[in-house]
């Protein structure tokens, strides 16, 4: 099978089609359609409560849509084959603190049939020099980098990053951006949710602005900015605020 042929027939890494998801009386996602192409970094940009995390959880098979379909590589996100090809960085309140950086990576790597070598994960996530530190003793930025390392250690083709830099200082954010960009440069696909406009602007090939569970605009960062002085102005105008 030729590469070109594969390009046309390969199902997209991630796809939500007409997805509606309710939690009680709250509609988290409202007939949302959205996808990611191979090699693309898409930012799902929106205010808190817009439905970003729900979209990520659906694509990771952590919840099921009320209607519509969620697909990863053309199949159910829960498929064992998809779990191997997918990595995730979720917002997590607490990670087992007594375990060391290299131990966390060793354990997660053991879940995958062909993981990246430990040294490569350490380098790709910027964890050099803190391999032996316990999770509890890491700084905020280091913790997020370890979670990023756990997301990529299985050598996945698609990763979903849910607000990866929330609460980090400028330096730590920049460092993580570099790691994320390097991952995409290897031909991998990324879904990143954020409410930081500069993050979407700096990283994304494509931005989807989400509000109240609907996509209100979609395009390259410059397309979204079109006519506005900054992404921030465009964003606020889109949300009608």
């Amino acid at each position: 099978m030729s590469t070109l042929h594969q390009l046309y027939t390969a199902p997209p890494p991630a796809q939500l089609a007409n997805v509606t998801k309710r939690f009680g009386t709250t509609t988290a996602l409202d007939n949302l359609t959205f996808g990611i192409q191979p090699g693309e970094l898409v930012a799902l940009l929106g205010p808190n409560g817009a439905g970003k995390t729900t979209a990520v959880r659906l694509l990771l098979g952590l919840c099921a849509p009320d209607s519509g379909i969620a697909r990863v590589f053309g199949a159910d996100p829960r498929d064992a084959a998809n779990r191997i090809r997918t990595g995730a960085m979720l917002q997590v309140a607490r990670v087992p603190e007594p375990l060391r950086v290299c131990e966390h990576i060793e354990l997660f790597s053991s879940y995958y049939p062909s993981p990246m070598p430990l040294a490569e994960v350490i380098a790709a996530a910027g964890l050099e020099g803190i391999e032996k530190k316990s999770f509890g003793s890491l700084s905020g930025g280091q913790k997020q980098r370890l979670l990023f390392g756990l997301a990529i250690c299985g050598n996945p083709d698609f990763i979903a990053l849910d607000e990866p830099t929330v609460g980090l200082d400028v330096e730590a954010r920049r460092a993580l951006w570099k790691q994320i960009r390097a991952f995409v440069d290897r031909g991998k696909s990324v879904l990143l949710t954020t409410h930081y406009l500069d993050e979407a602007d700096a990283l994304a090939d494509r931005v989807a602005v989400i509000d109240h569970g609907r996509i209100v605009a979609e395009g390259s960062p410059s397309e979204i900015k079109h006519g506005a002085r900054s992404l921030e102005d465009a964003f606020l105008a889109l949300l009608g605020r």
Binding site: L60, I84, T86, A88, L90, V95, Y111, L147, L150
Partner: peptide
């Protein structure tokens, strides 16, 4: 944390 683990194989 369990959800993070559930996203892995």
């Amino acid at each position: 944390w369990l959800h993070v683990k559930r996203t892995t194989p």
